[in-house]
Write a protein that binds this DNA or RNA. Structure first.
Length: 655
RNA sequence: GCCUGGGUAGCUUAGCGGUAAAGCGCGUCCUUGGUAAGGACGAGAGCCCGGGUUCAAAUCCCGGCCUAGGCUCCA
């Protein structure tokens, strides 16, 4: 039984402590008060409802003692964190169910996660067909509504109780260094070494679902044994669980690999190798538009295009330092007596171009741009669609600037990034990564660079996070993350200052003082990689690309074959667009359906009425329709919609 | 790299020891259609690759390749 009834005020002469409540008010309690005692102090109702607490942001059991000055938050079943507590208990039910069905299983850990929970087991041979049975057992455990009891146990007793659990003993050894006692939670016949917190009884777990089996190294270390991890999730009620599963399905519907296949955008084939995407004409059409867009921005911003080969002698990578630091991720091979490598980055090539001549301070900044294909040998298991590949193209830019030009150049880059984010209507996150422990460059230039980046961010009025010590060893950076349809954040645009490469390549310019000076290099990508960005866009738009990107922009649907001639004449009127005529022998309904399935932004429908009047009917993706449209009027609209890169077809949405 | 699934027609999938199936798409024909699937017929498959078990393998076993998800959010 729990001993967590509120302490009487008997020993009020003991020294009290003070905790801070979420509203900022202070609460004085006894020195030995637990989280639950504090809750009772606030009010008996809250005391009864207490499930757990948060001390200075850490989720703890309600039996944990509070301490002086702690920020305390009481967790009830109304709190956001409640579901986490419940899922932790659900993980225990999973372990209990597993131990009921399988002998000699060793328990590892079983925490809640953002989406549910997992539990890791060793010596468990199981496959997905076994999950329903375990799920049924969990439901039985929940129905039995076992009381979940907490117990404080000495290290010695714990060792005895965990004699058969090698992994738990390993954990216990570490815990013994910090405290004299540990806690156990038990439900029915089952118990586990666990810090908690947990709900009061298994019956409080609403709906559970086991999702998948995966391997996981003990403590995430490849050196350790591979255990069996079972993932599951739990919600307060069935309808929340349903909603979760529906969301998962929606995410799968948006999967860029599925849509890429349906729309014939790209393929990654066995014969051509893993992580090496092939772009089909419709996919390349979109990439070409993206290239053109960033090329316009680059030209406006004073960049000069350069081009470098895909292969370099490794001498270059020795000079740049990649060979030493990046070798494992590089494709390296011998040709005769020389060693060559596929480029994992474009910067050394650009630095070599800069180095090939002498520069005056008047020449700077020098801005090079290249859509440079790079090759990185990622672990096979990491490859995934277009989001992680071996070969990808960076819309790379490298600037060679005087230290006094950093601020202005960074501002201009951020302006470009903003243009892009707005154009695609994408959400984003910004972070400033500062000097790590190991770094090159003087204190002076680091301080100056960091404060420069910071002031640029301040002026741009963006929200950003500072990630202290997360910068590259060669300089601080600003990273943008794109947020995709399912809330995943992907690496996006980046602006990095580099004090290392100029050093290694001995880059210089002649200053006003006729002395040699070291330029600062700025690396920047707007899309990041075309592959990654393409993936984000496919999922972001669900394949329904804006007019300017759509591989097929307009499709003409003749109502009967008698209108085929007129249909082609109409198509010719739109020959500055990517237009097709659906000349198949089928009904209008089928043609409309096909056009929707193919995600064409606009359909032009022509029948006898239109042919007689010399007009067209226009239909869009949203099933809106307008008859008697003048060809010129529609073309003018398309021109504007395309050139302004509007994200949705709006010919029929204007009024 | 390691763990668990999966690889069957252009696409999506069924079949899981006994003559390779369906829907979509494609072709031919009928139909000439007015706003999200008209009808008939037909073509199309080294069942990922290589070994093995068996009278018999897409199916079972072993190895490989590719692919999906996962590999600390620490009791």
């Amino acid at each position: 039984m729990s001993e967590s009834e509120p302490e009487s005020e008997a020993d009020s002469d003991a020294e009290g402590i003070v905790v801070v409540l979420p509203d900022g008010s202070e609460l004085a309690v006894d020195a030995d008060a637990t989280v639950e005692d504090c809750a009772y102090e606030i009010g008996p109702g809250l005391g009864r409802d207490t499930v757990a607490g948060k001390l200075d942001g850490d989720l703890v059991a309600k039996e944990e003692p509070a301490y002086d000055g702690a920020e305390l938050e009481i967790i009830t079943d109304q709190s956001d964190e409640f579901i986490r507590v419940m899922r932790h208990s659900a993980a225990h039910c999973l372990a209990q169910a597993v131990e009921r069905h399988y002998d000699d299983v060793d328990l590892a850990i079983g925490p809640p996660t953002d989406e549910g929970f997992y539990y890791d087991f060793d010596n468990l041979d199981i496959d997905e067909d076994d999950l329903p049975e375990l799920e049924a057992e969990m439901e039985a455990i929940i129905d039995d509504d076992y009381e979940i009891e907490r117990e404080e146990v000495s290290i010695e007793d714990a060792e005895e109780r965990l004699a058969d659990e090698p992994y738990k003993l390993e954990l216990l050894e570490e815990l013994a260094e910090e405290a004299d006692t540990v806690t156990f939670y038990s439900q029915g016949e089952w118990e586990d070494l666990c810090a908690g917190p947990h709900v009061d009884s298994t019956g409080e777990i609403g709906a559970v679902k086991l999702l998948e089996i995966a391997g996981a190294y003990w403590r995430g270390d490849e050196e350790n044994t591979m255990q069996t991890r079972i993932y599951g999730t739990a919600f307060e009620d069935e309808s929340d669980l349903e909603a979760f599963l529906e969301r998962k399905e929606e995410a799968e519907e948006r999967d860029h690999r599925k849509i890429g296949n349906e729309m014939n955008l790209f393929s990654i084939q066995d014969v051509t190798g893993p992580g090496l995407p092939l772009y089909h004409p419709p996919g390349k059409t979109i990439l070409k538009e993206l290239e053109d867009f960033v090329e316009t921005l680059n030209q406006d911003a004073g960049y000069d295009y350069v081009e470098t080969p895909h292969v370099f002698k490794t001498d270059l990578w020795h000079r740049s330092g990649h060979y030493e630091n990046y070798q494992d991720d590089m494709f390296v091979f011998d040709v005769g007596d020389d060693e060559f490598g596929l480029k994992p980055m474009n910067c050394p090539g650009h630095a070599a171009i800069f180095q090939d001549q002498s520069w005056s301070y008047r020449d700077l900044p020098i801005r090079y741009a290249e859509n440079g294909k790079v090759y990185r040998k990622e672990q096979r298991g990491e490859l995934s669609g277009l989001s992680r590949v071996w070969a990808f193209t960076i819309d790379d830019g490298h600037l060679f600037v005087r230290p006094d030009q950093i601020e202005e150049e960074v501002e201009r880059i951020i302006e470009m990034i903003f243009t892009v984010l707005e154009t695609f209507d994408l959400d984003y996150e910004v972070s400033l990564a500062t000097r790590p422990e190991k770094s090159v460059g003087s204190d002076e230039i680091w301080e100056r660079a960091e404060s420069t980046l910071e002031s640029v961010l301040e002026e741009s009025k963006m929200d950003y996070e500072i990630e202290a010590g997360d910068g590259a060893f060669y300089g601080p950076k600003i990273d943008f993350g794109f947020e995709d349809a399912i809330g995943r954040v992907w690496d996006g645009p980046t602006v990095q200052l580099d004090f290392n490469m100029p050093e290694r390549f001995d880059l210089s310019y002649v200053g006003e003082d006729n002395e040699e000076h070291r330029p600062v290099m700025i690396h920047r990508g707007i899309y990041g990689s075309y592959e990654r960005f393409f993936m984000v866009l496919i999922e972001h738009y669900e394949g329904k690309f804006p007019l300017w990107l759509a591989p097929e922009q307009v499709r003409v649907l003749p109502i009967s074959d008698d209108n085929l001639g007129y249909a082609h004449r109409v198509a010719n009127e739109f020959d500055e667009f990517r237009v097709e005529v659906d000349d198949r022998d089928s009904t209008l309904e089928r043609k409309i359906r096909a056009a929707h399935d193919d995600r064409v932004p606009y359909q032009i429908i022509v029948g006898d009425n239109e042919e007689e009047d010399g007009t067209i009917s226009v239909r869009d993706r949203f099933e809106d329709q307008e008859y008697n449209v003048e060809i010129d009027a529609f073309r003018e609209h398309l021109d504007a919609e395309r050139d302004e890169k509007r994200t949705e077809p709006d010919f029929l949405q204007d009024e």
